[in-house]
């Protein structure tokens, strides 16, 4: 009788472990899917809009895309990313994406500052500039 009980307990534990693993896997899959969506919103859509802007001449559609769609897309993507980081803290893919976002933001800011500094230097070297 004792042996049978032990076997039953072992079987139950195994079943629980399998169920937990399956749940973790499905959660991880869900987090991965959400991370893909966040990636599209933060990077793919803004880069695509920037690319269109490079190719096409500035028209009303591009102004709307740049002024409204780009910030909204980045905002929603980052919000989704933060949601994933809080709800699924062990998901590796979202952690990597967040790191990429932060590094990209720092690089863009640094580039912008360098560009600004260069422009100021150029302007201060100009004498008798109109206006």
């Amino acid at each position: 009788m004792m042996e049978k009980n032990e076997e039953d307990i072992e079987k139950k534990e195994e079943k629980n472990t399998i169920n937990n693993n399956q749940e973790n896997e499905s959660e991880n899959m869900r987090a991965d899917k959400l991370t893909n969506i966040a990636n599209t919103l933060v990077f793919t859509i803004p880069i695509f809009i920037w690319f269109i802007n490079l190719i096409c001449p500035i028209n009303e559609l591009i102004v709307i895309l740049i002024k409204y769609i780009t910030p909204l897309s980045i905002l929603s993507g980052l919000t989704l990313l933060v949601y994933i980081r809080i709800k699924y803290p062990y998901n590796v893919k979202s952690k990597k994406l967040l790191k990429t976002c932060i590094i990209t933001a720092i690089v863009i800011t640094a580039l912008y500052c360098i560009l600004l500094a260069t422009c100021i230097k150029m302007l201060s070297n100009c004498e008798g500039m109109p206006g």
Partner: peptide
């Protein structure tokens, strides 16, 4: 960890919010 994530989001929202509203 949650505070840092919140501050990250807050920075982006305040900056892009300002640009969007102005637009």
């Amino acid at each position: 960890k949650n505070i840092l994530l919140y501050l990250f989001l807050l920075f982006i929202y305040s900056f892009l919010g300002g640009i969007l509203f102005n637009s």
